Simulated scan of single mutants.
Amino acid sequence: MSPGSDSRPRPASQAEHAFDLLERQLVTLELAPGSVVSEGYLIERLGMGRTPVREAIQRLAQQDLIRVMPRKGLLIVPIERTELLQILEVRKGLERLVVRLAALNARDDQRSRLSKIARTLATSHEDFETFLKLDRETDRRLDECAGNRFAAAAVAPLRTHCRRFWYASRHRLRLADAIAAHSAMIRLIARRDSVGAQKASDTVIALNERLAAEIE
């Protein structure tokens, strides 16, 4: 077999897959906030090699979702009110930038996809798992429309922190309000209304802030 025909997965793609799996388990609290686990436990849990899992852990540590404690293990970072409010403070400005750029730069086909997401959200019957899936898809589409990879890289970990918080607070979250706020923002972006979209983005962040303020 020639070098060019080697179909084995490359280490980078394996590391990305490990990252996606761990991020999902952090968001859904399968890896519980405040718990301490070992690298070996995560390797066994994912059924993957040490190198891609270690790379994924390093990325998540940079995003402050996991903290490496030498000779003790890996701390799954707790959800704390003060830190979450600080995250939202930073995210607010970044999201305003992303939605403004998305409204200004999106192509017609991208606007059509956003409109479809908004319609799907509106008919999701307040199903939390569907909402979470569509929220992640929305973020990916907005980043594509905005076309600023630096903004996308900066806001991505903040969104993950917020999704994990939503999952932890899903029984207190007024899902109908969240769906309405997200749908309104997406529709405004699709209509090229950058000013309205920024205001709608602020509304989404405000929902998070009110929920975070209730953490003891």
Rank of each mutant, 00 (worst) to 15 (best):
E83L: 12
P157G: 05
V37N: 01
M48P: 01
E39K: 10
L104D: 05
L132H: 01
G40D: 10
I57T: 05
G49L: 02
L31I: 15
V68E: 15
E129C: 02
R140G: 03
V155N: 09
R119P: 02
V98K: 14
R96K: 14
I76K: 11
R59M: 10
L142W: 02
E95S: 08
P33L: 03
E95Q: 13
R119K: 13
S38F: 07
P78H: 08
D109Y: 07
F150G: 06
R91H: 07
Q58G: 06
L42T: 03
N105I: 05
I87W: 01
V155C: 10
R141W: 09
L101E: 13
L121G: 10
P33R: 08
K133T: 09
F131V: 00
E129Y: 09
E80G: 03
P157S: 07
D127K: 01
D108A: 14
M48R: 01
K133I: 01
A103L: 01
V155A: 14
K92Y: 00
V98W: 12
P157H: 09
L158I: 04
F131L: 04
V53H: 08
A32K: 10
V68S: 10
R141A: 10
L46T: 07
R119F: 08
T51N: 12
D109A: 01
A122C: 01
Q110I: 01
R67K: 14
D127N: 13
D139C: 04
T160C: 03
L104N: 02
R107F: 00
R91K: 15
L158F: 05
S38A: 13
L46E: 04
D109G: 02
E126M: 02
L101K: 14
C145I: 00
P52L: 01
I87G: 00
G73V: 11
T120L: 12
E126G: 07
Q62T: 10
K72G: 02
P70H: 03
R140V: 11
R67S: 13
C145Y: 02
V155I: 15
Q62R: 15
A103V: 09
R45Q: 15
N105F: 11
I87A: 00
E89G: 04
A122F: 03
T160A: 13
A152V: 08
F150V: 12
Q86M: 03
L65M: 12
A153M: 12
D135N: 14
R67N: 11
P70G: 08
P157W: 06
R50F: 11
S112Y: 02
A118E: 03
R107E: 10
G40M: 06
Y41S: 11
G40F: 13
R119N: 12
R159Y: 05
L142I: 06
E55C: 00
A152M: 05
M48G: 02
K133V: 07
